[in-house]
């Protein structure tokens, strides 16, 4: 009984490692796994409308469309991080936080190109202006 419970825990642990990753599909059928991590105010104020990926040669391009849910202009910061097939971050510390302003109810597309052809997944981090 204890052994089965222990096994169940391991399976759940392994599954949660992939939890939160969604898939963006490109027009060619290429699939890119991604995750949008919103902290603070950005979680409530911003809605992820659409995530699309495309290929520029062998470089993956990602586009995340966000909408400002509130009736007020909002300034936040975002950063894309890219990972290879093994889950290792490509060029850590090479991408900086970018400030962006979005008007009330406006939609904005945040786009980024993978740093090199080995990129397989990406994470978009959103944070409120400190």
């Amino acid at each position: 009984m204890k052994y089965r419970a222990f096994l169940a825990l391991i399976v759940v642990g392994a599954l949660t490692g992939c939890a939160g990753m969604k898939t963006a599909e490109s027009a060619d059928g290429d699939k890119v796994k991604y995750q949008v991590i919103a902290t603070g105010d950005t979680e409530d104020r911003l809605d992820v409308l659409n995530v699309v990926s495309a290929k520029s040669g062998d470089l993956t391009k990602a586009s995340v469309e966000l909408q400002n849910d509130s009736n007020f202009a909002y300034t936040f910061e975002y950063r894309f991080k890219w990972y290879d097939a093994a889950g290792m971050e490509i060029n850590p510390d090479a991408t900086a936080w970018t400030p962006v302003s979005i008007m009330a109810k406006e939609t904005k597309s945040l786009q980024a190109l993978a740093p090199n052809p080995t990129a397989a997944t990406f994470k978009l981090f959103l944070q409120e202006k400190p």
Binding site: A96, T98, L113
Partner: peptide
């Protein structure tokens, strides 16, 4: 950082 990131992305894409 913003300039370098946008110019590189735009050119390579």
């Amino acid at each position: 950082q913003q300039i370098a990131a946008k110019m590189t992305d735009d050119m390579l894409a």
